[in-house]
Write a protein that binds this DNA or RNA. Sequence first.
DNA 1: ATTATTGTTGGTAG
DNA 2: TCTACCAACAATAA
Length: 264
Amino acid sequence: MPELPEVEYVRERLHGWLRRRRIVACTIADARLVRPARVATVERSIVGRLVERVERHGKWIRLTLDDGRLLFVHLAMTGWFELAESEQALRHERARITVSGRPHLTHVVYVDARRWGRWISSRSDTPTWAHLGPDPLNDTVDPAALRSRFRRSKSRSIKEALLDQTLLAGVGNIQATEALWKARVDPRARASALGDKQVDAILRAISWSIARTMADLARGERGKEDPFLVYGHRGQPCRRCKTALTHIILGGRTTTFCPGCQTK
DNA sequence: ATTATTGTTGGTAG
DNA sequence: TCTACCAACAATAA
């Protein structure tokens, strides 16, 4: 389910469950999760270690262990973490980390219906992590730097550019759709053609959208009625100008927008 | 039965 | 080397 706000929510929970705890057991039930590494190798690399840090950049989570070992986790479309009360496997459980605790052992379970998620155990940052763009929640994004990155792409739309994790980390299809509506920018506009004002408006809109989703999560609104203004609302009247929202495919993803008030 | 889905990646072509 | 495009990955819900 996750884009940046959901991944941050997961990170906060993991931090509470794992930080300063010792990993006493790890079972990886799905070899796909760690491919091309071996399940036993990854399990062995983290068992016995203390978890020192749980961090996030974009949609990636990085656990730092007390010997410097790093465990990178990507939730992809349907990855999530839950606490399990017993040895009984949860629905779609793919892996489990058991940590020592007071008073009992804690079973932190990774569930993932579609099995697109990834765990990577490494002694140093992966190239993917190293190449991520600035994180709109953790970092101060430099609008001028972002504009110059946008200008380098010849033909790409702003919608496609926003999904490029090396430009900005953590923005997914929902956040991009919502932010472009909020910023009144046509998703088909060439990224290279955007003016300073538009880029500034998009950055503000991304922060707004992330903050709104995080507030919903904090209120425990997950799975409640849909909080989005345009995503998934094709055919409905635009809340600003009443024009019917339409949709197109950009970068292989459904993109809903208002043809009336989102301009190039 | 059909269609859609909040994400990345590897291959290919240019 | 870089950019762009697209199929593939897999399970569920409407």
